[in-house]
Design a protein around this nucleic acid. Structure first.
Length: 393
RNA sequence: GGGUAGGUUGAGCAGGUGGUGAGCUCCGCUGACUGUAGAUCAGCCGUCUUCGACUGUGGGGGUUCGAUUCCCUCCCUGCCCA
């Protein structure tokens, strides 16, 4: 049960080794793993920074390597619109285009089904949407999404799905979106050609336990290389999210494939989801909040826009290895953000990504040493005492 | 010295030629952000007992039921002329 390469022999572009399965005592479902991709290995649990437009905003590939990124996510919808997937293919594929040599996972464009709001409509065939750039009309079908992702040449593609915001949706809508997602999953599998690219299926089902379970069984029954857990990281509470995960993961207990919770990004959320048995994550959160002035530290968060930092000559976080903390003070960063200086975005993004990736690294270390449950306990105490969401490990 | 245009809440403005000027943009303060239409957005930004009330249009005086507006005077600023 620990080796997907045995379960899916030879032909797949991606193998997942469970290096250390969840302990049988049930203290946690967290596990340690290793994803092999054409562009290198990824140790799980892992967080993937998001590089929507073939760039993690404000960083270059050297910065990304320095912060410890092993794999990044790029966005099919955005790259299809601009500069165009055919162009990227002509120019040698996404890795070459953006000079990133490590693995890339592409999103399918499914998320834009919800995030684009008024600009789209969904039917059984696919999604029709208006470009946020020029208002032009476009259509994504499952087949088309796969074709675009194959052009881009990512290591891991994901199925087109229909997420729904948990709280804004009736059970009926959730069920309909789930059924559609399942049908699209079949079509994505059938359309997928590229032998050097993995394909992940996506579970939906909202917060309804029976629908979640049904979706898990359906998606898990298909020969995907990995299982995405979709439709979370939205407006649900952390308790509701955990309940959804506790429905999903046990049904995958004997499944050797990686589990990827789409869209989750705060340290506390990741810790809880790892505990629930999730292997992979992505989110814009660390980079976005950084650009907007919020920096994560072990004690919680700092809003660098606050005037109290103007004379603070400490680094953001004592002992942090990131380039912001190595060289600069809080006062300097507080100055940069007020002056609208571009360097702020790079330094702030470096810090938050370093913080989160080091946090994940500490989680893996704790797992390897059998101290993960203690880590969860310690952090939940810390959280109760300080309402902190920047956690250290 | 003469002429002229002005003086509005930290800054810059709008408006207002007899009947409730707290309106905008900066700056400032605080918060939000989770498969990126986000280097973005929201709230606050004269005072107070804040679902409301009060104060405020350079100073002083006058006319008037009522003045930011009309009159007188002084101060300050820009420009032009001496």
């Amino acid at each position: 049960m620990t080796n997907a390469s045995a379960a899916v022999p030879g032909t797949r572009p991606l193998n997942f080794d469970v290096l250390l399965p969840a302990p049988p005592d049930g203290s946690t479902r967290a596990r340690l793993g290793n994803v092999h991709t054409p562009h290198g290995d990824v140790q799980t649990p892992i967080f993937m920074p998001v590089g929507t437009n073939a760039t993690v905003k404000a960083l270059d590939p050297d910065d990304l390597i320095e912060v410890g990124a092993q794999i990044i996510l790029c966005n099919t919808y955005h790259l299809y619109l601009r500069p165009g997937h055919e162009r990227i293919e002509r120019l040698g594929g996404l890795h070459k285009f953006m000079a990133w040599k490590r693995p890339i996972l592409t999103d399918s464009g499914g998320y834009q089904v919800v995030s684009l709001g008024d600009f789209r409509s969904v039917d059984d065939e696919g999604v029709t949407f208006r470009s946020h750039l020029d208002g032009s009309l476009h259509r994504f079908t499952p087949e088309h999404s796969i074709a675009v992702q194959e052009s881009l040449g990512s290591d891991i593609a994901v199925c087109l799905d229909q997420p729904v915001p948990p709280h804004a949706s009736s059970r009926r809508d959730v069920a309909a979106a789930m059924v559609r997602t399942h049908a699209w999953a079949e079509r994505c599998l059938a359309a997928h050609r590229r032998p050097d690219q993995a394909l992940f299926g996506i579970i939906q089902g909202g917060l309804e336990p029976d629908l979640r379970a049904e979706s898990t069984r359906v998606i898990a029954s298909m020969p995907f290389d990995g299982i995405c857990i979709g439709g979370l990281a939205g407006d649900e509470t952390s308790r509701q999210r955990r309940e959804a995960l506790d429905v999903t993961v046990p049904l995958l207990a004997d499944d050797p494939r990686p589990r990827y919770l789409m869209g989750l990004g705060s340290p506390a959320d990741l810790l809880d989801a790892v505990d629930a048995g999730v292997d992979m994550f992505d989110s814009v959160l660390p980079a976005r909040v950084a650009r907007n002035g919020t920096l994560w530290v072990p004690e919680g968060r700092l809003n660098l826009r606050n005037s109290r930092f103007l004379d603070d000559d400490q680094p953001i976080q004592e002992g942090c290895r990131c380039r912001a903390c190595r060289s600069f003070t809080r006062a300097y960063l507080a100055h940069l953000i007020r002056a609208d200086e571009l360097l702020f975005y790079r330094l702030a993004t470096c810090h938050n990504l370093t913080f989160l990736l080091d946090f994940m690294s500490a989680i893996r270390q704790a797992l390897a040493e059998g101290r993960f449950p203690e880590l969860v306990q310690k952090q939940s105490l810390l959280r109760d005492n300080s309402a902190a969401d920047g956690l250290s490990a």
